[in-house]
Amino acid sequence: MPIRRSTFTRPLVAMAMVAASSLYAIAQQPPSPSRVRGTIESVDGDVLSVKSRSGEDVKLHMTPDMRLVGISKISLSDIKVGSFIGTTTVPGPDGIPTAVEVHVFPEEMRGTGEGSRPYDLRPNSTMTNATVAESVVGNDGHALLVKYKDGEKKVSVPSETPVVTYVPADKSDLKAGAKVIAFTKKLPNGSFETNRISIGRDGLTPPM
Rank of each mutant, 00 (worst) to 15 (best):
P2N: 12
R5Y: 12
T7D: 13
P11C: 11
V13H: 10
V13Y: 08
M15A: 15
A16Q: 11
Y24Q: 09
A27C: 07
Q28C: 11
P31D: 10
P31V: 08
P31M: 07
S34A: 14
R35N: 07
R37M: 11
T39F: 01
V43L: 14
S49G: 07
H61F: 10
M62V: 14
M66E: 10
S75V: 05
D78F: 08
I79Y: 04
S83D: 04
S83K: 11
I85D: 01
P91N: 03
I96S: 02
I96D: 06
P97A: 01
T98V: 15
A99H: 03
V100W: 02
E101M: 11
T112P: 01
T112L: 14
G113H: 12
E114H: 05
G115C: 02
G115I: 06
S116M: 13
P118Q: 09
Y119M: 08
N124A: 10
N129R: 03
A133L: 06
A133Y: 01
N139I: 02
L144G: 04
L145Q: 08
L145F: 05
L145H: 01
K149N: 05
D150E: 12
E152R: 11
E152F: 06
K153Y: 04
T161V: 13
T161P: 00
T161L: 04
V163C: 06
P168S: 09
K171I: 14
K175T: 13
V180Q: 03
K185D: 10
L187F: 00
G190Q: 06
F192W: 12
N195P: 01
G200N: 04
